[in-house]
Amino acid sequence: MMKKIFFAFLLIIVFNKTLFPQDELKEQFQFANKLYEQGKYFDAITEFKRLQFFDEKREYEFISNFLIGKCYKEGAKLSDAIFYFSKAEIGAASSQQIFDSRIEVIKSNILRKTISRALKMIDELKADERFFRKKDTLIYWSGWAYIINGEWDKAAEQFSQVSFANSLADLCDSIDSESYSVLFAKYISYIIPGAGQFYTGNFLSGLLSLGWNVLWGYTTVNAFIEERIFDGFAVANFLWLRFYSGNIQNAEQFALIKNLEISNKALDYLQYQFSGLKP
């Protein structure tokens, strides 16, 4: 009797493990997925790769590539993530899977700041009839692409078209109105040296700029009045023009820095406090 039980035991072990290779793959998938859910992304990638290696029928091709992409994305390895999301798209069995893969590629492009690529992909999806009903989602992610690109006005415009993104539209609007106009800062410095610095709140720098320009402007004009023509040209070229063009570049730079500070503050809020969908 014991012998029979022993043989039955052996048979079960052998049959259980060899006759049902798909069960092995399923278990492997569950194991890998569990690691992914636990946030052990490096190990999860190893196990998904193992699944792919032994999955001869490629049953898990889409989901394993998709989740490997997600793991890489969590580890901020965005180029690797894009590679695996693209592989997932190749193995996709439905339009939904194609859409999901492409959205992840778009989100990864947004995060790695290859915005033009993200926007191009969004436009391609918008033009694809299969995804006609997904327009809101696409507009939403184009809004995020503009946010990361620092184009808050365009982001607000996109979010205002989507009913579930009103709070983001308001936020982008407020950031846009808070931002300094780089062109204005530059142009007023053309007219009055130092004015752009005053506009961006850098008063000392504005005063210095004005002072230098007055000094070298006066010296230049005075040299011409006294008919010391070479002196006039030399001072104008080597000193006045340098300070004048420096003042314009300086004003532009200050406006850009101020805008960056405002953008960073908003991005900080979006990263840590905003609870909606993020790339």
């Binding site: 039980i5 092995e24 492997q28």
Partner: peptide, 26 residues
């Protein structure tokens, strides 16, 4: 040879829960 169904079930269960290290893939 007749084996009680409960014994069979226990054995199957045992082999399935024997941990991932026993996967054939491992």
């Amino acid at each position: 040879m007749r084996i009680k169904p409960t014994v069979l079930l226990i054995l199957i269960f045992f082999t399935r829960i024997s941990g991932q290290e026993n996967f054939l893939l491992h």
